[in-house]
Protein backbone atom coordinates (compact mmCIF):
# COMPACT_ATOMS: atom_id res chain seq x y z
CA UNK A 1 0.00 0.00 0.00
CA UNK A 2 1.31 3.39 -0.90
CA UNK A 3 1.19 5.86 1.88
CA UNK A 4 -2.18 7.57 1.75
CA UNK A 5 -1.93 11.31 1.49
CA UNK A 6 -3.32 13.01 4.51
CA UNK A 7 -3.91 16.52 5.84
CA UNK A 8 -5.15 17.78 9.17
CA UNK A 9 -6.09 21.44 9.02
CA UNK A 10 -6.49 23.36 12.27
CA UNK A 11 -8.81 26.04 10.92
CA UNK A 12 -11.50 26.28 8.28
CA UNK A 13 -9.26 28.65 6.38
CA UNK A 14 -6.48 26.07 6.38
CA UNK A 15 -8.98 23.57 5.13
CA UNK A 16 -9.79 25.88 2.23
CA UNK A 17 -6.14 26.30 1.34
CA UNK A 18 -5.43 22.58 1.45
CA UNK A 19 -8.49 21.88 -0.59
CA UNK A 20 -7.60 24.33 -3.31
CA UNK A 21 -4.28 22.53 -3.75
CA UNK A 22 -5.85 19.11 -4.28
CA UNK A 23 -9.30 19.91 -5.60
CA UNK A 24 -8.80 17.65 -8.59
CA UNK A 25 -8.33 14.57 -6.43
CA UNK A 26 -10.81 12.31 -4.73
CA UNK A 27 -11.16 13.56 -1.20
CA UNK A 28 -12.15 11.73 1.92
CA UNK A 29 -13.41 13.86 4.78
CA UNK A 30 -12.54 12.20 8.06
CA UNK A 31 -13.88 13.10 11.49
CA UNK A 32 -14.32 10.55 14.31
CA UNK A 33 -13.69 7.67 11.94
CA UNK A 34 -15.94 5.14 13.67
CA UNK A 35 -17.46 4.10 10.35
CA UNK A 36 -14.56 4.79 7.99
CA UNK A 37 -12.07 2.77 10.04
CA UNK A 38 -14.19 -0.37 9.74
CA UNK A 39 -14.00 -0.29 5.96
CA UNK A 40 -10.53 1.20 5.71
CA UNK A 41 -9.23 -1.55 3.43
CA UNK A 42 -11.94 -0.75 0.90
CA UNK A 43 -11.05 2.96 0.71
CA UNK A 44 -9.51 4.08 -2.53
CA UNK A 45 -5.75 4.27 -2.21
CA UNK A 46 -5.73 7.36 -4.42
CA UNK A 47 -8.04 9.29 -2.15
CA UNK A 48 -6.64 12.13 -0.10
CA UNK A 49 -7.73 12.18 3.50
CA UNK A 50 -8.59 15.48 5.07
CA UNK A 51 -9.05 15.03 8.77
CA UNK A 52 -11.26 17.85 10.02
CA UNK A 53 -11.44 16.65 13.61
CA UNK A 54 -8.66 19.04 14.62
CA UNK A 55 -10.51 22.18 13.52
CA UNK A 56 -11.37 23.98 16.75
CA UNK A 57 -14.16 26.00 15.11
CA UNK A 58 -16.02 22.75 14.48
CA UNK A 59 -16.28 21.88 18.14
CA UNK A 60 -18.52 22.91 20.96
CA UNK A 61 -22.10 23.68 21.88
CA UNK A 62 -23.20 27.30 22.10
CA UNK A 63 -26.58 28.86 22.84
CA UNK A 64 -27.14 31.88 20.62
CA UNK A 65 -30.47 33.60 21.23
CA UNK A 66 -33.21 31.11 20.49
CA UNK A 67 -30.89 28.66 18.81
CA UNK A 68 -28.34 26.06 19.82
CA UNK A 69 -25.26 25.87 17.63
CA UNK A 70 -23.39 22.58 17.62
CA UNK A 71 -20.02 22.25 15.93
CA UNK A 72 -20.05 19.33 13.50
CA UNK A 73 -17.05 17.63 15.13
CA UNK A 74 -18.67 17.60 18.56
CA UNK A 75 -18.74 13.99 19.78
CA UNK A 76 -21.92 12.21 20.74
CA UNK A 77 -20.74 11.87 24.32
CA UNK A 78 -20.05 15.59 24.55
CA UNK A 79 -23.66 16.15 23.52
CA UNK A 80 -24.91 13.55 25.96
CA UNK A 81 -23.07 15.22 28.84
CA UNK A 82 -24.00 18.77 27.84
CA UNK A 83 -26.40 20.50 30.24
CA UNK A 84 -27.55 22.73 27.43
CA UNK A 85 -28.62 19.79 25.34
CA UNK A 86 -30.06 17.96 28.36
CA UNK A 87 -32.20 20.96 29.26
CA UNK A 88 -33.18 22.29 25.88
CA UNK A 89 -33.18 19.37 23.46
CA UNK A 90 -34.15 16.27 25.47
CA UNK A 91 -35.24 14.41 22.34
CA UNK A 92 -31.64 14.43 21.09
CA UNK A 93 -30.47 13.02 24.40
CA UNK A 94 -33.05 10.25 24.12
CA UNK A 95 -31.73 9.38 20.68
CA UNK A 96 -28.02 9.50 21.52
CA UNK A 97 -28.55 7.34 24.60
CA UNK A 98 -29.61 4.50 22.30
CA UNK A 99 -26.56 4.87 20.10
CA UNK A 100 -23.65 2.45 20.30
CA UNK A 101 -21.45 2.46 23.40
CA UNK A 102 -19.50 4.95 25.44
CA UNK A 103 -16.34 3.85 23.59
CA UNK A 104 -17.89 4.77 20.24
CA UNK A 105 -19.75 7.87 21.45
CA UNK A 106 -16.40 9.27 22.61
CA UNK A 107 -15.22 9.20 19.00
CA UNK A 108 -18.25 9.47 16.76
CA UNK A 109 -19.31 13.00 15.86
CA UNK A 110 -22.71 14.46 15.15
CA UNK A 111 -21.48 15.80 11.82
CA UNK A 112 -20.34 12.33 10.88
CA UNK A 113 -23.66 10.79 11.80
CA UNK A 114 -25.46 13.36 9.66
CA UNK A 115 -22.95 13.36 6.81
CA UNK A 116 -23.06 9.58 6.47
CA UNK A 117 -26.66 10.16 5.43
CA UNK A 118 -27.73 6.73 6.59
CA UNK A 119 -31.51 6.38 6.76
CA UNK A 120 -30.77 4.66 10.08
CA UNK A 121 -28.71 7.56 11.48
CA UNK A 122 -30.20 8.04 14.91
CA UNK A 123 -29.43 11.74 15.40
CA UNK A 124 -31.14 12.57 12.13
CA UNK A 125 -34.82 11.94 12.91
CA UNK A 126 -34.85 14.21 15.99
CA UNK A 127 -32.94 16.90 14.11
CA UNK A 128 -35.44 16.70 11.26
CA UNK A 129 -38.48 17.18 13.50
CA UNK A 130 -36.68 20.03 15.26
CA UNK A 131 -36.34 21.73 11.86
CA UNK A 132 -32.63 21.94 12.26
CA UNK A 133 -30.48 23.89 9.86
CA UNK A 134 -27.11 22.78 8.62
CA UNK A 135 -24.30 25.22 7.99
CA UNK A 136 -22.08 24.18 5.13
CA UNK A 137 -18.74 25.59 4.14
CA UNK A 138 -17.68 25.60 0.52
CA UNK A 139 -13.92 25.85 -0.06
CA UNK A 140 -14.48 26.72 -3.71
CA UNK A 141 -16.58 29.81 -3.06
CA UNK A 142 -15.18 30.37 0.43
CA UNK A 143 -18.73 30.89 1.58
CA UNK A 144 -21.04 29.45 4.14
CA UNK A 145 -24.54 28.41 3.19
CA UNK A 146 -27.31 27.30 5.48
CA UNK A 147 -29.89 24.71 4.48
CA UNK A 148 -32.71 22.88 6.24
CA UNK A 149 -31.45 19.43 7.26
CA UNK A 150 -34.20 17.70 5.31
CA UNK A 151 -32.72 18.99 2.06
CA UNK A 152 -29.27 17.60 2.85
CA UNK A 153 -30.06 14.03 1.91
CA UNK A 154 -30.42 12.81 -1.64
CA UNK A 155 -30.45 9.05 -1.04
CA UNK A 156 -29.04 6.34 1.19
CA UNK A 157 -25.46 7.46 2.01
CA UNK A 158 -25.81 10.34 -0.45
CA UNK A 159 -26.03 14.08 0.23
CA UNK A 160 -26.53 17.27 -1.71
CA UNK A 161 -23.09 18.47 -0.58
CA UNK A 162 -20.92 19.68 -3.45
CA UNK A 163 -17.37 18.43 -3.73
CA UNK A 164 -15.23 19.74 -0.92
CA UNK A 165 -18.18 21.10 1.05
CA UNK A 166 -18.16 20.23 4.73
CA UNK A 167 -20.82 20.44 7.40
CA UNK A 168 -19.58 22.91 9.96
CA UNK A 169 -22.53 23.60 12.21
CA UNK A 170 -25.82 22.15 13.27
CA UNK A 171 -28.26 24.87 14.26
CA UNK A 172 -31.26 23.82 16.27
CA UNK A 173 -34.05 26.33 16.89
CA UNK A 174 -35.35 26.32 20.45
CA UNK A 175 -39.09 26.28 20.83
CA UNK A 176 -40.50 28.99 23.01
CA UNK A 177 -43.85 27.32 23.53
CA UNK A 178 -44.10 25.64 26.85
CA UNK A 179 -44.93 22.03 27.33
CA UNK A 180 -43.80 20.50 24.08
CA UNK A 181 -44.25 16.75 23.88
CA UNK A 182 -41.28 14.89 22.55
CA UNK A 183 -40.89 11.26 21.57
CA UNK A 184 -38.01 9.21 20.29
CA UNK A 185 -37.98 5.48 20.00
CA UNK A 186 -35.90 3.17 17.94
CA UNK A 187 -36.44 -0.50 17.37
CA UNK A 188 -33.24 -2.40 16.81
CA UNK A 189 -32.25 -6.03 17.07
CA UNK A 190 -31.49 -5.99 20.78
CA UNK A 191 -31.25 -3.55 23.68
CA UNK A 192 -27.70 -2.26 23.18
CA UNK A 193 -25.27 -1.77 20.30
CA UNK A 194 -27.87 -2.04 17.63
CA UNK A 195 -28.59 -0.54 14.25
CA UNK A 196 -32.10 0.78 13.79
CA UNK A 197 -34.73 -1.32 12.00
CA UNK A 198 -37.22 1.50 12.32
CA UNK A 199 -37.45 4.60 14.48
CA UNK A 200 -39.77 7.49 15.08
CA UNK A 201 -39.13 10.99 16.34
CA UNK A 202 -41.96 13.34 17.19
CA UNK A 203 -42.60 16.67 18.79
CA UNK A 204 -46.11 17.91 19.34
CA UNK A 205 -48.21 20.50 21.02
CA UNK A 206 -51.64 19.81 22.44
CA UNK A 207 -54.35 22.16 23.55
CA UNK A 208 -57.21 20.87 25.62
CA UNK A 209 -58.01 17.62 23.91
CA UNK A 210 -56.76 18.38 20.44
CA UNK A 211 -53.38 18.13 18.78
CA UNK A 212 -52.41 21.65 17.81
CA UNK A 213 -49.55 20.42 15.70
CA UNK A 214 -47.22 17.43 15.42
CA UNK A 215 -43.96 16.91 13.59
CA UNK A 216 -42.92 13.36 12.75
CA UNK A 217 -39.87 11.77 11.16
CA UNK A 218 -39.33 8.07 10.54
CA UNK A 219 -35.90 6.48 10.42
CA UNK A 220 -34.65 3.50 8.44
CA UNK A 221 -37.83 3.16 6.41
CA UNK A 222 -37.16 5.43 3.42
CA UNK A 223 -34.11 6.15 1.26
CA UNK A 224 -33.68 9.33 3.30
CA UNK A 225 -35.02 10.43 6.66
CA UNK A 226 -37.96 12.70 6.03
CA UNK A 227 -40.96 14.28 7.67
CA UNK A 228 -44.19 12.31 7.60
CA UNK A 229 -46.11 15.34 6.42
CA UNK A 230 -49.33 13.66 5.34
CA UNK A 231 -49.60 11.95 8.68
CA UNK A 232 -48.83 15.22 10.46
CA UNK A 233 -51.45 17.02 8.43
CA UNK A 234 -54.03 14.36 9.19
CA UNK A 235 -53.43 14.42 12.94
CA UNK A 236 -53.31 18.17 13.22
CA UNK A 237 -56.34 19.64 14.95
CA UNK A 238 -57.81 16.26 15.78
CA UNK A 239 -58.70 14.57 18.99
CA UNK A 240 -56.80 11.31 19.28
CA UNK A 241 -59.52 8.68 19.24
CA UNK A 242 -58.80 5.04 18.42
CA UNK A 243 -60.32 5.61 14.99
CA UNK A 244 -58.03 8.57 14.31
CA UNK A 245 -54.99 6.65 15.49
CA UNK A 246 -55.83 3.72 13.25
CA UNK A 247 -56.32 5.98 10.29
CA UNK A 248 -53.04 7.75 11.02
CA UNK A 249 -51.29 4.37 11.05
CA UNK A 250 -52.54 3.64 7.57
CA UNK A 251 -51.41 7.03 6.33
CA UNK A 252 -47.88 6.71 7.71
CA UNK A 253 -47.66 3.24 6.17
CA UNK A 254 -48.17 4.86 2.77
CA UNK A 255 -45.62 7.59 3.42
CA UNK A 256 -42.70 5.23 3.94
CA UNK A 257 -40.94 2.95 1.49
CA UNK A 258 -38.79 0.53 3.47
CA UNK A 259 -36.64 -2.23 2.05
CA UNK A 260 -35.78 -5.77 3.07
CA UNK A 261 -32.20 -6.19 4.21
CA UNK A 262 -30.27 -8.42 6.60
CA UNK A 263 -31.72 -6.65 9.64
CA UNK A 264 -35.41 -6.91 8.80
CA UNK A 265 -38.06 -7.09 6.13
CA UNK A 266 -40.08 -4.48 4.32
CA UNK A 267 -43.37 -5.80 5.71
CA UNK A 268 -42.07 -5.83 9.27
CA UNK A 269 -40.72 -2.30 8.99
CA UNK A 270 -44.12 -1.08 7.85
CA UNK A 271 -45.76 -2.90 10.74
CA UNK A 272 -43.47 -1.51 13.43
CA UNK A 273 -43.56 2.00 11.99
CA UNK A 274 -47.33 1.89 12.40
CA UNK A 275 -46.84 0.53 15.91
CA UNK A 276 -44.35 3.26 16.74
CA UNK A 277 -46.86 5.89 15.67
CA UNK A 278 -49.50 4.29 17.85
CA UNK A 279 -47.02 4.09 20.73
CA UNK A 280 -46.17 7.75 20.24
CA UNK A 281 -49.78 8.91 20.05
CA UNK A 282 -50.73 6.78 23.04
CA UNK A 283 -47.97 8.42 25.04
CA UNK A 284 -49.31 11.76 23.89
CA UNK A 285 -52.80 10.89 25.12
CA UNK A 286 -51.51 9.73 28.50
CA UNK A 287 -49.93 13.10 28.90
Amino acid sequence: MNSMQYYSPNTINEYRKIYSGIADKSILIFSGGTDLMVGRHELSQDAVIIDISGIAELKGIVKKGDKIHIGSCTTLNELLCSHKIQNDIPILIKAIKTMASEQIRNRATIGGNIGNASPAGDTITPLVVLETKIEIFSPESNEVRTIPIKTLFSGPSATTLEKGEIIIKIIIPLRKDEDIFCYFRKIGQRNAMTITKASLSAIAKCSDTKIEWIKLASGSVSPVVKRMSKTEEFIKGKKLTPVVINEAKEIIAKEISPITDIRSTKAFRVLITKNLLKDCLSALIKR
Binding site: Y6, S8, F30, G33, T34, M37, V38, R40, I49, D51, S53, N77, A100, S101, E102, Q103, I104, N106, R107, M193
Partner: peptide, 24 residues
Protein backbone atom coordinates in the same frame (compact mmCIF):
# COMPACT_ATOMS: atom_id res chain seq x y z
CA UNK B 1 -15.91 -1.33 17.55
CA UNK B 2 -18.64 -3.73 18.58
CA UNK B 3 -17.06 -6.03 21.15
CA UNK B 4 -14.89 -3.76 23.32
CA UNK B 5 -12.02 -6.24 23.74
CA UNK B 6 -9.63 -3.54 22.47
CA UNK B 7 -10.85 -0.83 24.86
CA UNK B 8 -8.18 1.66 26.02
CA UNK B 9 -8.11 5.18 27.39
CA UNK B 10 -7.24 7.94 24.92
CA UNK B 11 -6.80 11.34 26.53
CA UNK B 12 -8.64 9.91 29.53
CA UNK B 13 -11.63 8.82 27.49
CA UNK B 14 -12.68 5.26 26.84
CA UNK B 15 -12.27 4.31 23.16
CA UNK B 16 -12.09 1.24 20.91
CA UNK B 17 -8.47 1.15 19.80
CA UNK B 18 -9.50 -0.66 16.60
CA UNK B 19 -11.29 2.51 15.44
CA UNK B 20 -8.62 5.09 16.27
CA UNK B 21 -6.41 5.95 13.29
CA UNK B 22 -2.73 6.74 13.72
CA UNK B 23 -3.31 10.25 12.38
CA UNK B 24 -5.32 11.09 15.51
Amino acid sequence: GECGACTVFMNNKLVNSCLVPAMH
